[in-house]
C-alpha cells in the first residue's frame, strides 16, 4: 500500500506540528519528569503502606490513609484550614474589591504608578514580609510597645488565628486585587451609567450591573487567594502558635517528625483535588463570560 498523497496544506500542517512538538519538547520532558511524575508518585504514596520503621512500602495498596482523614482530629485540622482560608478570601474580597475599584478608576498616569506600588510587595520576598509582620505584632514589638505606652496594655495577638489571618491577608491580598482590577478596568462604563440612570440608586446599579460584570474577576481572585491560603505553610509556621495547626504544616509534619508519608500524601491529594476543582470552576466562569453572560 502506498501512502496517500497529502494535500499541500496537510503536509505543511504536519511539518508545522512537528516543529511545534520539537520546540516544546525540552520543557515538556522536563515537566513530565519533574512535575507530572512527582504528582503521580504522591498519588501512589497515598495508597501505600507505612512500615514500622516509618518508611513507605508501595505495595498492598489500601485506603488507610484516606480513612484516617475522617478522624476527628484530622478533620478538625482540615476544617480549621478551610474556614481560615475562607475567611481570608472573604476579607480579601471585602478589602480588595473597593481597592481594585479605586485603582481602576484613577487617571491612566496615576493608575500605572499605583499598580507598580501594588506589584512590588506582591513579588518581593514572601518569607521576609511575613517576618516583618511577626516583628511588628510580637508581644514586645513596636505595635505592642506603642499600645502599652499609651496605656492600652500589651498587645497579644501573635500565635493566634487572628495573626495567621492577618499574615494571609498580607500575603495573598494582591492575588485578589489583580484579577479584580483587570475585570473592573475593562468594564463598559456606558452600561454602568445607563444603570445609574435606570435605577437612580447607586447601590442597586452596582448590584445589577457592576457586580455581575466583574464576577469573573471575583471568582478568579477568590480562587487565587483560597488555594494558597488553604495549603499555607510559612504563614502559620511563623505567625500561628501550636494551637493553630493548619493543613500545610500538618502535611509537612507527616514528611518530617511523624514520618508517615502515605498519610501526608493523602492530605496532599486533598489539596491537589481542591486546586483542580478551583481551576475547572475558574475556566467555566471565564468560558461563560466569553459566550456572553452580560444579561
Amino acid at each position: 500500500m502506498t501512502a496517500p498523497k497529502l494535500a499541500p496544506d496537510a503536509a505543511v500542517r504536519k511539518a508545522e506540528s512537528r516543529r511545534g512538538v520539537f520546540t516544546a519538547m525540552p520543557a515538556a520532558i522536563y515537566l513530565l519528569i519533574f512535575f507530572c511524575t512527582p504528582l503521580l508518585i504522591i498519588v501512589a504514596y497515598s495508597f501505600g503502606t507505612r512500615t514500622a520503621t516509618g518508611s513507605t512500602r508501595l505495595s498492598g495498596w489500601n485506603f488507610d490513609s484516606y480513612e484516617r482523614i475522617i478522624d476527628d482530629l484530622v478533620l478538625g485540622i482540615v476544617w480549621r484550614s478551610f474556614w481560615l482560608a475562607g475567611l481570608t478570601t472573604i476579607l480579601c474580597l471585602v478589602v480588595g474589591y473597593p481597592f481594585a475599584y479605586y485603582l481602576a478608576t484613577r487617571p491612566a498616569r496615576i493608575r500605572n504608578i499605583l499598580l507598580v506600588l501594588v506589584m512590588i510587595p506582591f513579588w518581593t520576598n514572601g518569607l521576609i514580609r511575613i517576618f516583618a509582620i511577626r516583628f511588628l505584632l510580637g508581644s514586645d514589638g513596636p505595635v505592642s510597645q506603642a499600645s502599652s505606652s499609651l496605656g492600652f496594655g500589651e498587645f497579644r495577638i501573635l500565635f493566634t488565628p487572628t495573626a495567621v489571618i492577618i499574615g494571609m491577608l498580607y500575603s495573598y491580598l494582591t492575588f485578589m486585587v489583580l484579577p479584580l482590577y483587570v475585570a473592573i478596568e475593562r468594564l463598559d462604563w456606558r452600561l454602568v451609567e445607563a444603570a445609574r440612570d435606570l435605577y437612580a440608586n447607586g447601590g442597586k446599579a452596582f448590584r445589577k450591573v457592576t457586580w455581575p460584570l466583574t464576577r469573573s474577576g471575583v471568582i478568579a481572585g477568590s480562587i487565587l487567594v483560597f488555594i494558597p491560603s488553604f495549603g499555607s505553610y510559612v504563614v502559620p509556621e511563623i505567625l500561628g502558635g501550636a494551637k493553630t495547626l493548619l493543613l500545610g504544616s500538618y502535611i509537612a509534619r507527616q514528611f518530617g517528625q511523624a514520618r508517615n508519608w502515605p498519610f501526608g500524601a493523602a492530605l496532599s491529594v486533598v489539596l491537589i483535588v481542591a486546586m483542580l476543582i478551583a481551576v475547572v470552576v475558574n475556566q467555566r466562569s471565564a468560558a461563560s463570560e466569553l459566550t456572553g453572560s452580560s444579561s
Binding site: A28, F35, P38, I41, S268, L271, M275, V279
Partner: peptide, 23 residues
C-alpha cells in the same frame, strides 16, 4: 501541555515540596 505547564504556578508550595521529596 498548556494546562500542565501552568499548574506549578498555582499548586500550593507544600504540595509541590512533598511531591518532589517523594519523587
Amino acid at each position: 501541555l498548556e494546562g500542565v505547564a501552568y499548574l506549578p504556578i498555582i499548586i500550593p508550595d507544600v504540595t509541590m515540596a512533598v511531591m518532589l521529596l517523594a519523587f
